[in-house]
Computed example of a mutant assay.
Amino acid sequence: MSSPAEFYNSLPPITKAYGTICFLTTAVLQLGILTPYHIALLYPLILKNLQIWRLIAPFFFLGKFSINFGIRLLMIARYGVQLEKGPFDKRTADFLWMMILGAVSLLGLSAIPYLWSPFLGTSMVSMLVYLWSREFPNAQINIYGLVNMKAFYFPWVMLALDMIFGSPLLPNLLGIVVGHLYYFFSVLYPLKTGRNPLKTPFWLQRLVVQWRLGAQRTAGAGPTVRDNTSTGTGAFRGRAYRLDR
């Protein structure tokens, strides 16, 4: 069995960065350096006082250290990693673009008074789980060692468990809605029409390639970088994007 350090180093870059920032955010709040109020999504303070960080920070708060926090972090480590290493393999820019689109969509929905949520980390995890359940619909999920089911139904079971345990339904529901919208417009719609309205922009592709080049040079590796980008002609299938120097 690999050590925790080896497991951490083996994680794909976007999932590793997101999970790490989520952990550090909770640690900072737990130590009392900041309070949840300082990072909550409060549109009046964003508009009046230009507290722009409130548009970003809420996505990295999964709650205080608790069993629920641990479960959400494990979901990132399992389902986010399986997405990034599976359908998004060698498509780092596409995976990052998916996260960005999800964040923007959640911010838009939260601007509606009845759909407002101060923290969107749980919603982002729910979105990842929903997309995973659509990409691996026949995978088997075990719920508390009691019930086995197909992954396709897992997001709805999470919603039902929230209801049973008295947790807020809105965060997971928002994640499911945004995940379904992304899946429809990036997979189902392109399969039918051959057009992908959510295609990753070229500037982000270039940014990711340059970042990977820099990381390889720092590590002493060669300068060849290969990354795939979506063409919108299939379910998370892409073409090669290559930069050789």
Score class of each variant (00 low, 15 high):
residue 88 F to Y: 10
residue 134 R to I: 13
residue 120 L to M: 15
residue 162 D to P: 04
residue 115 L to S: 01
residue 103 A to I: 03
residue 63 G to F: 10
residue 135 E to M: 11
residue 73 L to K: 05
residue 84 E to K: 06
residue 110 S to G: 00
residue 114 Y to V: 15
residue 121 G to S: 11
residue 112 I to G: 07
residue 62 L to V: 12
residue 164 I to E: 07
residue 59 F to A: 10
residue 65 F to D: 14
residue 54 R to K: 10
residue 124 M to Q: 00
residue 150 K to R: 14
residue 124 M to F: 00
residue 124 M to H: 00
residue 162 D to M: 07
residue 122 T to A: 10
residue 122 T to C: 08
residue 52 I to W: 01
residue 148 N to H: 01
residue 108 G to C: 08
residue 127 M to C: 09
residue 90 K to Q: 11
residue 138 N to G: 09
residue 135 E to Y: 12
residue 136 F to T: 14
residue 88 F to G: 06
residue 152 F to H: 13
residue 67 I to G: 10
residue 90 K to R: 12
residue 128 L to F: 07
residue 102 G to E: 03
residue 62 L to W: 03
residue 140 Q to E: 10
residue 139 A to S: 15
residue 68 N to Y: 08
residue 135 E to K: 14
residue 101 L to G: 06
residue 120 L to G: 03
residue 160 A to N: 09
residue 86 G to K: 13
residue 153 Y to M: 09
residue 51 Q to N: 11
residue 97 W to F: 02
residue 127 M to W: 04
residue 130 Y to T: 14
residue 98 M to D: 02
residue 69 F to G: 13
residue 131 L to H: 01
residue 159 L to R: 12
residue 89 D to R: 12
residue 49 N to C: 12
residue 64 K to W: 05
residue 129 V to T: 15
residue 135 E to A: 10
residue 105 S to M: 02
residue 106 L to R: 02
residue 102 G to I: 08
residue 79 Y to E: 10
residue 114 Y to I: 15
residue 146 L to T: 13
residue 131 L to E: 08
residue 80 G to T: 02
residue 150 K to E: 15
residue 118 P to D: 04
residue 59 F to G: 04
residue 50 L to G: 06
residue 132 W to V: 14
residue 96 L to R: 02
residue 106 L to I: 03
residue 122 T to S: 09
residue 77 A to F: 14
residue 73 L to D: 02
residue 103 A to D: 00
residue 50 L to I: 06
residue 110 S to M: 02
residue 128 L to E: 04
residue 78 R to N: 13
residue 57 A to F: 05
residue 105 S to G: 01
residue 166 G to S: 06
residue 77 A to T: 13
residue 71 I to F: 11
residue 125 V to F: 03
residue 93 A to W: 07
residue 161 L to H: 01
residue 66 S to I: 04
residue 78 R to L: 12
residue 145 G to D: 00
residue 132 W to E: 14
residue 88 F to T: 05
residue 62 L to Y: 06
residue 112 I to Y: 12
residue 58 P to C: 04
residue 85 K to E: 15
residue 146 L to N: 02
residue 134 R to K: 14
residue 87 P to A: 08
residue 152 F to C: 09
residue 72 R to F: 07
residue 72 R to W: 11
residue 96 L to M: 07
residue 66 S to A: 06
residue 163 M to R: 04
residue 86 G to C: 12
residue 151 A to C: 05
residue 88 F to I: 08
residue 58 P to I: 10
residue 65 F to V: 15
residue 104 V to I: 07
residue 111 A to E: 03
residue 50 L to D: 11
residue 50 L to Y: 11
residue 140 Q to Y: 02
residue 133 S to C: 13
residue 77 A to V: 14
residue 63 G to Q: 06
residue 155 P to L: 14
residue 82 Q to W: 08
residue 158 M to E: 13
residue 53 W to R: 01
residue 106 L to Q: 08
